[in-house]
Design a protein around this nucleic acid. Structure first.
Length: 773
DNA sequence: CAGTGAGCGAGCTTCCGCTTGACTT
């Protein structure tokens, strides 16, 4: 029997839709794009109207032939990819590749996977919008031009295998510029004054803060002295109602941020867990920029809220997407079943689901109603005032369920809850008055999630690329996720008590950073280079301005090849000029001083394998004098390293002593500092420096390594030819440089040589595994 | 896994956005 064929992008979506459609339809998935430019070639014919050369990637061929077969046997083919630029292009590529006939091909779209939305889509088919497709082609080709013309310049001028692109290079720029702001930041000190007053009843306390910060010790002393003789009284009491509204439902970016703040998930972890929730049918699609909720979701949310919390907690809300460049092909991320506050699954899945559930429920709940009270306290000797503030929740509303977190690291000004009842002009007795020194905070380093938020604000990147982009800039070693110890500060404290002023000090660490994005030397050098020669592409508004052009193309107002040509005509000459540039020194090179021993200059720069120091210039007349090299160590930077530190690097490798008749040498290799002893390597932990390590410490490390190794070996056969080892994922068998997994039901300690041989023989060969790619 | 790096030179690397697998040391 002939059927209608519906093609969607995602297999999970296909499964759901199939249920709604019934017998006359079969639903297949394209798994995203089915054609693209070649991966290893430029694939754009610049001379010929920027004609792209599309190919079907190897891992898509089988799928495409299956789709082709299904399309041939179908009465009608319905292309149901997403209703955005990429989705329209997918539909077009499908129609081109499968050789579809316009007569029995329809383009349909829906934004939510509900029966009514799908039925409506079936009733209102259209044809492929070629303008929208061309907008996508322009986007694709522009990204290819930028990426494939800039990256090779970096290979030549900085280091092989680097990359540049419209999105990643701007992401790195944000991080580099933030780091510079932090370096240039000088914190200022001021004193925050807090007083505790006693009410006329002799026991109730009221805590209040001075309405301005004091500058410097002299002013503090003067102020406290004036307080000694002052009288305090209530000046004014003001209360005002305060309303708080819930945050909109989750998009990809806000989910990544909240999961990072509340669950400490990395961006990619959030996406992996969300993917599983989506595949098991618990949530809607997780890559979206829309805050829209379907009527179905709105209805079931209302039921859940009124049923669980009561009608007074419910409020209908519709959210509008404000994000720049949003394409809104999907709904917001929400539970598929609003009557299920919990699901079964892994601990991570449960936690992420709960977060999504609460956020969705909360966004349809009533405002929280609070009352804000401020009591100002007069000081008879001065015009300054103390102010006590308190906030009382009158009705919790959505706060009952969910409160959005912030990245704000600045200390929370402790707010009082309920303030005691007071009357104007009531006299107060001062207890302690304490002035504590505070320092202004440097700008915060980006986290993965806060970088995503910034990129989204700038309209750069898409929900499907946030996590991969962050991965890329770390893979290229432009940026690392790392820790930076805070700065220790002495904090001065002055307090007035029983008419005496006392001073004290305490130590505090501020600005301690963990798991933040920090630029590397390579990232900094590449960024500065691109900023100098390609400021247009690096501009934060570059994406926004080309998006405007893409919109014009989609509207049919602009020819896509003309738009590309306009860009290429200014971009390509800059590429040519930069390539031809002859520079005496390498990009990012810096002379740190002169080697006192040889009188040769000492440089630091990016080498083929990373940052290096160099003594002596190349290209000298004397061919026998060659420059010497040494890698920088982790944590050192070509921007800040001193001559002394650089010279020390040349002390390596060095011999630290002998052990068991063999020399122990210390060096720094590709994987960090190591001790070498009789052909074996032992890593030196962070706590020890290869420059300072002693023979005793080195021996200890060697012994530790040996102990660990013996624990690693569970059994040996054939003189070590076949071994059972303890690895990261449990026990495994190693044989001839290959590893084999042990079946779950077997006890690794009891396996015989015979068992091992069987397992090895039964394992699929390497060829079979590799065939696909 | 490990000390590389100054040149007669092989051949390689790279973009952004759609989407999941297959895999496991």
């Amino acid at each position: 029997m002939q059927k209608n064929l519906v093609i969607v992008e995602s297999p999970a979506k296909a499964k759901t839709i199939e249920k709604f459609l019934g017998k006359g339809y079969s639903v297949m998935s394209s798994y995203g794009h089915i054609r693209d430019l070649k991966t290893k070639e430029f694939s754009v014919d610049v001379e010929n109207g920027y004609a792209p050369e599309y190919v079907i990637p190897a891992d898509k061929r089988k799928l495409v032939s299956e789709l082709k077969k299904a399309a041939l046997g179908a009465t009608t083919v319905l292309l149901a990819s997403d209703e955005d630029r990429e989705g329209e292009a997918i539909a077009w590529h499908l129609s081109e590749t499968l050789g579809l006939d316009e007569k029995n091909t329809q383009r349909i779209v829906f934004h939510e996977i509900t029966k009514s939305a799908i039925m409506h889509a079936l009733e209102t088919p259209r044809s492929i919008d070629i303008n929208l497709v061309n907008a996508q082609q322009a986007r694709r080709v522009l990204d290819r031009i930028v990426g494939f013309e800039l990256s090779p310049i970096l290979w030549r001028k900085v280091k092989p295998a680097l990359s540049a692109g419209r999105v990643q290079s701007v992401a790195v720029r944000l991080i580099v510029e933030r780091e510079r702001e932090i370096q240039q930041f000088t914190s200022e000190s001021s004193f925050r004054v807090i007083a505790t007053f006693v009410l006329p009843d002799g026991e109730t306390l009221l805590k209040a803060e001075l309405n301005r910060r004091l500058k410097g010790e002299a002013e503090v002393q003067k102020f406290l002295a004036a307080c000694r003789t002052a009288e305090f009284s209530i000046e004014d009491i003001t209360t005002k109602p305060l309303r708080k509204s819930p945050a909109p439902p989750f998009t990809t970016s806000t989910l990544q941020q909240e999961a990072a703040r509340k669950l400490s998930f990395s961006v990619s972890q959030t996406m992996m867990v969300a993917q599983r929730l989506y595949e098991s049918g618990h949530i809607t699609y997780m890559r979206t920029d829309s805050v829209n909720l379907s009527d179905l979701a709105l209805g079931t949310s209302k039921e859940a809220i009124t049923g669980t919390y009561g009608a007074q907690y419910y409020k209908f809300r519709k959210y509008q997407t404000k994000t720049r460049g949003a394409q809104e092909a999907h709904e917001a991320i929400r539970p598929t079943d609003m009557s299920a506050p919990e699901i079964s699954g892994s601990a991570q899945e449960k936690r992420l689901y709960e977060l999504i559930y609460k956020r969705t429920i909360a966004c349809q709940m009533a405002d929280a109603e609070l009352e804000h009270t401020a009591i100002s306290i007069r000081i008879s000797t001065m015009k300054e005032k103390f102010v006590a503030t308190g906030e009382v929740i009158k009705f919790d509303g959505f706060l009952h369920v969910y409160m959005e977190s912030t990245d704000d690291e600045t200390e929370k000004e402790q707010e009082n809850g309920l303030l005691p009842p007071v009357k104007p002009n009531e006299p107060l007795t001062a207890g302690d008055i304490t002035a504590t020194e505070r320092f202004t905070q440097r700008p915060p380093r980006y986290t993965e999630a806060s970088l995503v938020r910034r990129l989204e604000e700038l309209g750069i990147g898409r929900p499907s690329t946030y996590a991969p982009t962050i991965q890329t800039i770390q893979n290229r070693e432009y940026v690392i996720r790392g820790d930076r110890p805070g700065e220790e500060r002495i904090i001065r404290i002055f307090s007035l008590r029983d008419e005496k002023i006392k001073s004290s000090q305490k130590k505090d660490t501020i600005g301690n950073d963990r798991n933040k994005l920090i630029p590397t030397d390579i990232g900094i050098v590449v960024n500065d280079f691109l900023m100098e020669y390609f400021p247009g592409v690096m501009d934060y508004n570059f994406t926004a301005s080309v998006e405007k052009e893409f919109d014009a193309i989609a509207e049919g107002e602009l020819d896509w090849t003309k738009a590309l040509d306009r860009f290429y005509r200014f971009f390509h000459p800059a590429v040519e000029a930069t390539s031809a540039l002859k520079t005496e020194h390498k990009v990012g090179e810096r002379q740190v001083g002169t080697d006192p021993k040889s009188g040769e200059p000492v440089f630091v720069k990016i080498g083929r394998y990373g940052p290096i120091a160099q003594i002596g210039a190349a290209h000298t007349d004397d061919k026998n004098v060659k420059p010497r090299f040494a890698s920088l160590m982790k944590g050192q930077s070509i921007e800040t390293i001193t001559l002394e530190e650089a010279l020390k690097l040349f002390d390596l490798p060095r011999t630290v002593g002998e052990y068991e008749g063999e020399e122990m040498t210390v060096g720094v290799g590709r994987f960090g500092p190591f001790v070498r002893h009789g052909g074996k390597f032992v890593s030196i932990p962070k706590t020890l420096s290869p420059l300072a390590i002693t023979a005793e410490e080195a021996i200890l490390l060697i012994e530790e390594k040996r102990k660990k190794d013996t624990q690693r070996h569970i059994r040996q056969f054939e003189n070590g030819g076949i071994e059972i080892l303890h690895g990261r994922y449990g026990a495994y068998i190693a044989c001839g440089g290959k590893n084999y997994r042990i079946p779950k039901d077997a006890d690794p300690a009891k396996l015989t040589l015979e068992d091992c041989r069987k397992i090895i023989a039964a394992a699929p060969s390497g060829k079979e595994k590799k065939k696909k790619g």
